[in-house]
Simulated assay, not measured.
Amino acid sequence: MDLDAYVAEHEGEWRRLEQLLGRRRLTGQESDELIALYQRAATHLSAVQSRAPDPALVGRLSRLVARARSAVTGSTAPSLVTFARFFTVGFPVAVYRAWPWWCGVATAFSAVAFGMIAWFGTHPALARQLAPDSVLKQLVEHEFADYYSENPSQDFAAQVWTNNALIAALCLFSGVLIFPVLIVLFENAVNVGEIGGVMVAYGRTDVFFGLITPHGLLELTAVFVAAGAGLRIGWSWIAPGRGRTRSQALAETSRAAVLIALGLVVVLAISGVIEAFVTPSGLPTWARISIGVAAFAGFLAYVVVLGGRAARAGETGDLAVGEREDLAPTV
């Protein structure tokens, strides 16, 4: 493509579109003209990006097309309706549709973690090879339980939320590469398995599960959902499916993953509050575990009921058609 010739040929149309966008009121004829010029500008942008991606021209046309799209489709301000729709439709259906992925992740993670717990728990001599006996006794008798109460609850909740949010974000946004997600999951499964195995080997099974269960059920589920959504992004690039290009499949699954990321912010905040205020509390073990199980069951019911209903209604967790990218017609 001769970029200078292309710009010279279409410069008049772009300037005319800018003029129309600068007006407060348009006649019916001018509105029709704006729509036609917007469609042409979107086609021009696609052509430039694919044939001669000059950064300055791409930036100019991208801004012009974005302004025109807003003028044509109208802009919507965030509202309570939008907020409610996100939590009753967008987030639950995105999680629901990704369930084979995060359930698969949960199964693999649990197999590794519980396998190591059982192995070390039934082979105390092997568990003692992980570290000196004095270090392990310090962990079993003090450090594991003290971890949940050594800092003020509100500070600990913020710390836990930040740490878990980083892990979830890493799983989500490195999912296109697949292997980083698998590494993060394996490292965390091994960590849980080793600590749990040591606690079991030293006869503190009740302490381990009594402290990790209240918050761990919801917290780990959130990480599993993030990892599953991330792996789904990576797989969409490998196997986009019939009727979709790789870029289209990647865009669709990535947009759904963004909804999941936003929703998990709240889920991880809830698990952080439980870990900071319930796990180290003086409540009986059965009461603390009951709170954790209730939060976990509530999340699953929320996803299955609302997400399932939205999926049956045809919702996908993707943006509305008018809010997606523009695609140039192809032959």
Rank of each mutant, 00 (worst) to 15 (best):
V303E: 13
R288S: 07
L217W: 01
Q49H: 03
L218A: 07
P124N: 00
F277I: 04
A127N: 00
Q49C: 02
A165W: 04
V303Q: 13
L45S: 01
S153T: 03
Y148H: 06
L57F: 12
Q159D: 01
W101N: 04
A77C: 07
G104V: 01
G272K: 14
A269M: 14
N151W: 15
T221A: 11
V192G: 00
A239M: 11
V89S: 10
D326Q: 14
F299H: 10
I183W: 09
L34S: 05
P152K: 12
H123N: 01
L306S: 08
W161C: 03
A311K: 10
V273D: 08
V48A: 06
L45W: 10
G216V: 04
I260V: 15
H123E: 02
P180A: 08
Y147F: 14
F179N: 02
L172T: 08
P240W: 15
S70A: 11
F209V: 09
D146F: 03
D2R: 12
L80C: 00
G272C: 14
L268W: 07
G115F: 04
F114K: 00
L126G: 01
Q154I: 11
V93A: 03
G12M: 04
A226V: 02
G104P: 04
R15Q: 10
L306C: 05
T245V: 10
A108H: 03
I167L: 06
A169F: 09
V89H: 10
F224S: 04
L17N: 01
T205Y: 13
F144N: 00
A113I: 01
A169R: 01
A320T: 14
C171G: 05
A106Y: 11
G12P: 08
M1F: 14
A98K: 02
I289H: 12
A47Q: 12
R51V: 10
V304W: 15
A165N: 02
S149N: 13
R242Y: 12
E325K: 12
T162Q: 13
H215F: 07
L327S: 09
I270W: 08
G12R: 02
A222M: 08
A94D: 01
W101E: 08
S236V: 06
Q39F: 06
T27F: 05
G241Q: 07
G175M: 09
L211A: 12
L218G: 13
A276M: 13
A276C: 13
H123D: 06
V72F: 07
A276H: 13
F208H: 12
V293R: 05
A66Q: 15
E187F: 09
A169S: 12
V198P: 00
V135E: 04
D326F: 15
R25S: 12
F179Y: 12
L268Q: 06
I260S: 07
V293D: 09
L3S: 01
A52Q: 10
N163Y: 13
V184G: 00
N163G: 11
A131Y: 05
V93P: 02
T88F: 12
V181S: 05
L20C: 11
I260N: 09
I178M: 06
R255Y: 15
L259V: 11
L20R: 13
T43L: 01
A313W: 08
E325A: 14
E33K: 06
A106S: 13
